[in-house]
Every structure is written in structure tokens, then in C-alpha cells.
Write a protein that binds this DNA or RNA. Structure first.
Length: 574
RNA sequence: GGCCCCGUAGCUCAGCUGGAUAGAGCAACUGCCUUCUAAGCAGUAGGUCGUACGUUCGAAUCGUACCGGGGUCGCCA
């Protein structure tokens, strides 16, 4: 067993059997205390706050409780020293041979490790860009984040549906088709007056051209044109997503779902709960009195539930608002019986979170469902110090496909997830175009490549085949440097890191971990330059070389596994 | 004005869900390429964690108020 599972099991067992904390439920027991690797090695290999946490509950001083716990742990021969210090931390020092065996344990489990989770059926919705044009760079963040979160959730064992909601109904589609038809009828006209009635940009001209080429016969039938246009644009979007390795396995069409039957259904349910009425909305602060026109429409009593204002469900002409169509879509998801609904939205949609949650809670009082919305901050595209201004309305934006062409999927993916979603990302074109060595992706990949080259050198030096070595039988006795222990501990923490990344929907924990691991490995490698006895491959000592190479190999395998989860390439050579 | 997000080293960010002496990467300065690939390593310097109260054994982390930055506020998406 890896140290974390081993200690958790041991400590929980002791707490519940010896000290009898019966009133605590399992979850509280398991989640309430930490087992961590302190940065300061004086605080032990591993440290836990269990005595302080439980002392409150069972009314015993942390030191007295700590004493009882350490008495129990002392029985284990892998532990060479135990201390209760400060306000009641228990610091645990393991023997070197324990950590050596942990490394073997890790290699044994690396592909078969079973995460201790309650398996959930999760629907994660992301991208859902409108099919009215190409995706721009701003879409990339949600796309990569959603895809990576899915990948991590799948890794720990959840059942994940990756869904794309196609907004193929409503005003913007009418405008799109109007634009296409305009282009079809004005093929020779290169000048295109900007107008709010049309979508600007050359892309839609291209689409119109293709429609004419391929579907000449349909060019007068608007419904058919609409069908073909949406088809074409979605194909482009999917192909762009494919290029950054984002693959949804479910596409839901707004048009198909926003049918009368569903609208009536929702309306009826809300009416039964006395949550809707025909009336007038409050004037929003941002609208001037002169511009404000009151119109009667169907409203949701959002104010009653803590919102600023009641919200429109239907437009005055009876068409669905975005809010209504969203309620229908999410109700559809709830009816598909997921344990968790997770949405990745841009931060500019933050105002809609409250009203949608309110509506769904009211509609599903008796049902258990977990609905979470992860908001992503903006991506600023910089050219030197200048922010590249983008405006979809003016048709001025940097497309995703152009950026991928320049930087590649690896760099793009890593950049987009390497910081917390709530932080803004400055995507500096100048740096990225130059494929700078400052790039953290290369740094991590290079650590892997170095490990691979070590294997080659080992094989050549000792005329041996490392791949045929049985690691679980090999002697790791020589792994005794502090730097080696630090690396082993970090490796053994890999699964905990993945779990915390999954539980929090935070892929940046994985990129940070990989970067740290790579840094520690490069430092380990560097030791050999200062002190040649610390080289990983020592020509005159096959045993030490073999031990150290097992460690390097383990590092390479963890890096590879991590990068695979992130869908970032792990080249053998660079 | 309401609501949401953010304030941690000069810059960009971590900080394992409340733990011990707050950490990285850039940038700056000093060393290391007849070397297990320098796409790398070692070292130096840099902090009242926006401010003030509060909660408790213990706060960058939780609460309240304020300050600063951003987002958003019709039937757009």
C-alpha cells in the first residue's frame, strides 16, 4: 500500500476502534484530517494533524491523544521515529527501506491503482459556441479546461458525458442565414457594409460560396440552406476542436429540445408553484430612462429567490429567451439522471448562474442533483504590451485554428489549464511564436526525454537491457540521498494529487505537479555535475546505476501518465 | 448603485480546502558546456499575503466592513 492509504487506514482504524468515536460518520472521519508531506524535512517525512482535529471531538488534549496514537504507530517497524510537536502535530519519520519499497509499490500500482471514490455519473457541458462562425481563441480555454477536467474525472473512475449544446435556434441563427443569403445574392460585391442585421467577416462569405457550389439546387430554399449551413459550420468547429484534442461524445441541439411540449411542461410546473406571471420587468440600471421601454411578457419570480429582478422567460412576441431555453436544456439533463451536472462557462455569464440554479431547484425539489458551474476568466491576447482587441460583432478576432497552427496543441493545452480558472491568462504571442525555452511544456517533456536517454546510456555502458529488469525484485538499497527521498515522496503523492485535482475540477494542480517533479528531477540530474559520485549512471558501479535508474524510470512513467491525462504529447526524443 | 470574480516578491502565478520558518517561474546579479544532450544545474537578492476588525490553540486560507482592479446588469449570446 502507498504511504497515504496505509496511514489513513491505520489511523482511522485506531480512532474508531480504540477511542470509539461512534457518533462520527465515515465521511467526516475520513475527510477531517490531513496526511501531508511537509516542505520542511525537520517536520518528518509525513505529518498529520489528526490529534488536533479529534481532540476537540473527544475532549482530550492533542498531546495526550497524540501519545496514544504514536504508541500504536510505534508498533510498525517501517517507522523509525515519531514526534508530537507544537500544538499537536504528529511527525512521522520512515526508514529508508520503507521509501525504497514504496517506489516498488508505486511501479507495481501505476497502471492499476484503484482510486477510492464513489463513482458518479457526470455530465460536463463545455464550449457550446454558437454555430455562427469560427471559434476564436477565447473559446479555447473553456474547451481545453472542460476536456481536461473530463479526462481527470475519467481517470479516477467516474462515468463522464462530454456534452456540447448547439445553439441552433433563435435570433442569431436567423441573422446567420440572412447573412448567408445576402452573400449568395451578392457574390460579386466585395464591399460589405457593416450593419447590425448581418454577421461580418470573410468566413461566412466562404460558407456561402460552398453552399452554392455543393448545393446549387437548394439555394432558394431557406430551410434547406439553414440545415446545410449549420452542418458546415459545426463541421468546422468540430474539426478545430479535434485539432486541440477536444472530443465531445454528446451533441444536443437546442432546436430539437426547445419544442412546444417542453416549453409548456416547464411553464406548467412553474405555474403550479406560483413562480411565473405576465408583467413588466424592472428597469435595469444600465439602461437609460429614455431608452427603457416597458413591455409585458412572461416572467419568472426570481426576485423572490434572492435575485435582483424577475427574469423574462418569453420575449414579448412569445419566443423563448435564452433563460427559458436553458431551463429546458438543463431540465433535460436532470431528467437523464446524472449525479452531477458540471458546466464550464465564461465569466461573462456569471449573472445567469443564480437565476438558473433558482429555477432548477424549484423545479426539482424532491430530486437530488448536484449542479456546479465553473466560470473561466478571460484570455488576453497580447502582442508585446498591447492587448489584441477582438470583437466578434465587427468580425475582428483571432481564430483558434490560426493560433493552433502557430503554437501547436501541446503548448495551447498546457497554457490554458496551467492556472486556476478564476485567474486571467495573458497569452503573449511574441513569446509563444518564438517557441521560447521558457515554455513549461518543453521543460516537462525534456525531463522525460532525459530519463529515456539514461536508459540508453545504461544499456550501452553495461551491455544490459533495462527494460528486462524486474523492478520489484531489484535492489534499491542505494537510494539514500535526500534528493532521492524527496523525489520518491513526490512520486508516491501522485495519486493524491490526481484525486484532489478531480474533486476540485482543477487541472492546474496536475500541470503544477508535473512542473515541480520535472524541476526536482533536473536538479537531481545536476548533482552529477557538481559531484560525479552522484551521477545517475556510474560506469564503475552497476548496482548504484541500476537503483538510480529505477528512480529515473519511475519519474518518466509518472510524467508520461500525467501528460497522457492532459492529452499532451510525451515525445521520446526532442 | 446591485451581484459575481480577483488583490501573495519588480512581473506572472502556486500555496494540498484552517497548520509549523509563505513557495516557484520570469526579470536582475554570480558561477557551471573537453560533462549521463546547457531545451539544463547551483547560488544571491527580493514579502507588514490590499487595509482593519472578528472567529480559535493556530488565518494568505473562514466571517464582516472598507480600499483597489475586472466582469456583468432588457428580449443579445
Amino acid at each position: 500500500m502507498l504511504y497515504h492509504d496505509f496511514l489513513k487506514y491505520k489511523l482511522l482504524d485506531f480512532i474508531s476502534s480504540e477511542i470509539l468515536v461512534k457518533e462520527l460518520n465515515e465521511k467526516l472521519k475520513a475527510d477531517s484530517f490531513n496526511i501531508e508531506i511537509p516542505d520542511n524535512k525537520e517536520f518528518g517525512d509525513v505529518s498529520t494533524n489528526i490529534a488536533m482535529v479529534f481532540s476537540k471531538i473527544i475532549d482530550m488534549s492533542p498531546h495526550v491523544l497524540g501519545k496514544k496514537i504514536t504508541e500504536e504507530l510505534k508498533k510498525n517497524e517501517s517507522i523509525k521515529k515519531l514526534e508530537i510537536v507544537g500544538p499537536g502535530f504528529i511527525n512521522i519519520f520512515f526508514t529508508d527501506s520503507f521509501w525504497q519499497s514504496q517506489l516498488k509499490e508505486l511501479m507495481k500500482k501505476i497502471d492499476t491503482y484503484k482510486y477510492k471514490i464513489k463513482k458518479k455519473k457526470i455530465c460536463i457541458e463545455f464550449v457550446s459556441a454558437n454555430p455562427t462562425g469560427l471559434m476564436h481563441i477565447g473559446h479555447a480555454r473553456g474547451a481545453v479546461l472542460g476536456d481536461t477536467i473530463s479526462s481527470i474525472l475519467e481517470e479516477v473512475g467516474h462515468d463522464v458525458e462530454k456534452e456540447y449544446y448547439i445553439n441552433d435556434a433563435g435570433e442569431q441563427i436567423k441573422k446567420l442565414i440572412k447573412t448567408i443569403i445576402f452573400h449568395i445574392n451578392n457574390r460579386t460585391d466585395n464591399k460589405f457594409e457593416m450593419s447590425d442585421d448581418f454577421y461580418p467577416g470573410d468566413y461566412l462569405k466562404e460558407v456561402a460560396k460552398k453552399i452554392l457550389e455543393i448545393h446549387k439546387d437548394y439555394s432558394k430554399d431557406e430551410n434547406l440552406i439553414e440545415e446545410k449551413v449549420l452542418d458546415l459550420i459545426m463541421k468546422d468547429i468540430k474539426s478545430d476542436l479535434f485539432k486541440i484534442r477536444v472530443d465531445h461524445n454528446s451533441f444536443v441541439s437546442e432546436k430539437q429540445i426547445s419544442v412546444k411540449e417542453n416549453v409548456n411542461n416547464i411553464t406548467k410546473k412553474l405555474e403550479e408553484k406560483n413562480l411565473i406571471y405576465f408583467g413588466y420587468q424592472d428597469k435595469p440600471k444600465s439602461i437609460s430612462v429614455e431608452k427603457w421601454q416597458q413591455k409585458k411578457q412572461l416572467l419568472f419570480k426570481s426576485k423572490k429567490l434572492g435575485d435582483d429582478s424577475d427574469r423574462a422567460l418569453l420575449k414579448p412576441d412569445g419566443q423563448l429567451t435564452y433563460f427559458m431555453s436553458d431551463i429546458i436544456y438543463h431540465q433535460n439533463k436532470i431528467d437523464r439522471h446524472y449525479d452531477t451536472l458540471l458546466n464550464i462557462w465564461g465569466i461573462d455569464h456569471s449573472g445567469y448562474v443564480k437565476r438558473l440554479k433558482n429555477a432548477l431547484e424549484e423545479l426539482n425539489k424532491k430530486k437530488k442533483f448536484n449542479f456546479e458551474i465553473k466560470l473561466t476568466s478571460l484570455v488576453n491576447l497580447l502582442e508585446g504590451d498591447q492587448i489584441v482587441k477582438m470583437s466578434k460583432r465587427e468580425g475582428k478576432y483571432v481564430t483558434l485554428r490560426d493560433v493552433v497552427k502557430i503554437v501547436g496543441a501541446d503548448v495551447l493545452r498546457f497554457m490554458m489549464i496551467s492556472r486556476n480558472a478564476d485567474k486571467r491568462i495573458d497569452f503573449d504571442f511574441e513569446i509563444i511564436k518564438s517557441k521560447s525555452k521558457d515554455n513549461p511544456v518543453f521543460y516537462v517533456q525534456y525531463a522525460y526525454v532525459r530519463c529515456m536517454s539514461l536508459i540508453k546510456i545504461y544499456n550501452k555502458t553495461f551491455d544490459d537491457d533495462f527494460n528486462k529488469i524486474n523492478i520489484s525484485n531489484s535492489n534499491l538499497f542505494y537510494l539514500e540521498l535526500d534528493e532521492e527521498k524527496v523525489l520518491i515522496k513526490k512520486l508516491c503523492n501522485y495519486f493524491n494529487m490526481i484525486i484532489s485535482s478531480a474533486n476540485n475540477y482543477e487541472p492546474h494542480r496536475v500541470t503544477n505537479y508535473l512542473f515541480d517533479l520535472a524541476r526536482d528531477f533536473h536538479a537531481y540530474w545536476g548533482l552529477g555535475k557538481i559531484d560525479s559520485s552522484k551521477k545517475i549512471i556510474l560506469e564503475n558501479n552497476i548496482d548504484i546505476s541500476k537503483s538510480r535508474l529505477v528512480l529515473a524510470y519511475a519519474i518518466s512513467q509518472v510524467i508520461k501518465k500525467g501528460l497522457n491525462i492532459l492529452k499532451i504529447d510525451c515525445p521520446e526524443k526532442m
